[in-house]
Amino acid sequence: MSAFITHFAFEFRTGLRNSTQLMMNYLFPLGFYVMTGLVMTQVNPGFRETMAPAMVVFVILAATMLGLPGPLVESREAGIYRSFKINGVPAASILSIPALSAVIHALIASTVVALTAAPLFGGRAPTNWLAFAGVTLLAALSCGALGALIGVMASNSRSVVLYSQLVFLPSMLIGGLMMPLTVLPAGVRPISALLPSAHAMQAFQGLAYGEAAAWSPWLAVGVLAAGGLIALALAIYLFNWDSNNATRRGHPLLALLALAPYVASLALVAG
């Protein structure tokens, strides 16, 4: 337990004092939130309806998809995990503790968004705060696991950016953050079911705001939970201690199994 606390405390502090991680955990998502609150609410007043959950999901994506995977790859490339292995740091800790740290930072920033969206920008407050907190926590944990998996499967610092953006950019465009799924073209709407952000938004809408969602909010909760668990299990299984060591337990393409719940939901939504 002492090792876990010491390790977590170090990772958490790093999330604040490392300039890149500070940027992805707080400065970029909260700065974007303020800009969006100032501009989008004027251009599109309807944005206020989904502003709080959308910006919470954005904060989570920034911390877990943009902030988490890069340092995992850089540490592996620098031989830091070799040092950890020699000293008995388990692979599960190497992955889960930075992921948990990113999740905690995301929850702190999410709390700032949730509590200020209404008073600062007229964002609509949730009708069920407990459900709002629960969905926020689930989305953060699920995305944290997915971020760890991206960090494991990316072979180098260049590819990690590509993989992260493969989740982040579509989430912004068709994940229900900047516009509701109902305004998307009918052919595109089901594809959004491949994105954790879209499921998080449907869960918020159905459970925290008590409104009709594009698909069952409980389906969304199930997909986020299953996707997170599978991603974490795959990340630990595929984890490689050393960039120079060719021995690994499975092909990186196995990581695609983490998409299974999302693909299944796509079939249900499209059907």
Binding site: A3, I5, H7, F10, S75, G88
Partner: peptide, 21 residues
């Protein structure tokens, strides 16, 4: 280069001592 860039000697000592109990 085998330690995180932001880790201080004090933190490194605490970190590895904790894992060795």
């Amino acid at each position: 280069g085998g330690l995180p860039a932001d880790m201080t000697p004090r933190e490194a000592m605490r970190f590895f001592a904790a894992y060795h109990d």
